[in-house]
Amino acid sequence: MTISDSLRDTRILTHGSVSIPAVGFGTLIPDPVVTKQATKAALEAGFRHLDCAERYRNEAAVGDAIQDAFKAGTLRRQDLFVTTKLWNTNHRPERVKPAFDASRRRLGLDDIDCYIIHTPFAFQPGDDQDPRDASGQVIYDSGVTLVETWQALERLVDEGHCKSIGLSDITLEKLREIVAVARIRPAMVQVEAHPYLPERELLDFCRTHGIVLQAFAALGHAMEPRVLEDPVITAIARRVHKTPAQVALAWAVQRGTAFLTTSTNPGRIRENLDISALPEDAMRQMRDEITTNVRFNAVVETGVPGFISRTG
């Protein structure tokens, strides 16, 4: 990875020579109309990595914004990196390809740059994305293993239309299991990571195996304790004349990770792309002086996303 003064165009190369833009726009936005507007604003600002998911229920809106940019001549397919995800209810191998093809249709794309298993937890297969029993407990599917689902993704790569594959919401222990048996190794793993959850051990493992670690909730998702109010980050922001958000995002890229950020505000979208390299002493400060450690999303424990409502 080459770090320039401006970090917005940084790309990270995987073991499989897949080049992934470090700066990504996440599309976890409940309203489809707002999704299309925000995606359009992100593409106009210069984002070239879009992160989508079947579970977000808005792939068609993202696809509309992409197609509008293609038609306007402001974007070429080869300049855009699109990720989408397989939901928990589709882990059985026979359900993987139909789910993948449905995502392609909704996005209006022939090829997906990276297809990711949304969580390592298999839910009861069916149309209900959030299957629950009479007592409100998630109904898991014990009839399929994560390795079997991974092998179904490998076949997607063999068949074309899927350029690379990855995992999300995964622990280091589970990732080790997949890497040990994978015929096609993960190109990317997507996990919660930010200055309050640096995931250093996982990042070291990913570096060793040529896997891109992509951080979601890279700004802490505005939850308490607020990452962007940390005194170390705010002091650095004043010193380098950037916002605390820009400091946290620059830190993410400089430490060798990709990140996702989501906003529906065009000004904030542009701000999140306007990141510059931090001085080395600032990077050391963030490593050594930030001691808060907190995970905001318990999805790694249950497979139930903490940032998506059950009905949304």
Rank of each mutant, 00 (worst) to 15 (best):
G160C: 15
S164N: 10
K163L: 13
S164G: 14
R132A: 02
G136S: 04
S142P: 11
W150T: 01
Y140M: 07
T145H: 08
V147Q: 13
R155L: 05
I139M: 12
E154W: 11
G143Y: 01
V157H: 12
V138D: 05
E154K: 08
K163W: 15
T149A: 09
W150Y: 11
E148M: 02
D158H: 13
V147F: 05
S164P: 09
E154I: 08
G143H: 08
V147E: 15
D130G: 00
G166S: 11
E154N: 07
A134P: 00
Q137V: 05
R155G: 00
H161E: 15
T145C: 08
V147Y: 06
C162Q: 14
G166V: 09
G136F: 10
G166W: 10
L153I: 06
A152L: 08
V147T: 14
H161L: 13
Q137T: 07
D141V: 05
Q137L: 13
Q151D: 02
L156K: 08
V138M: 14
D141T: 04
V144Y: 02
Q151Y: 01
S142G: 06
A152F: 03
L153N: 06
I139C: 02
E159T: 12
A152R: 04
D141Q: 04
D158V: 13
R155Y: 00
G143P: 05
V138Q: 11
G136H: 02
G160P: 13
W150S: 00
W150R: 04
Q151I: 01
G136R: 00
W150Q: 02
S142V: 03
Q129P: 05
G166I: 08
D141N: 07
V157S: 10
C162M: 13
D130K: 01
A134W: 00
G136K: 01
T149M: 09
L146E: 03
I139H: 07
I165P: 03
I139L: 10
P131M: 03
A152S: 11
I165Y: 09
I165L: 11
A152Y: 02
H161Y: 15
D158S: 15
S135M: 02
D158F: 12
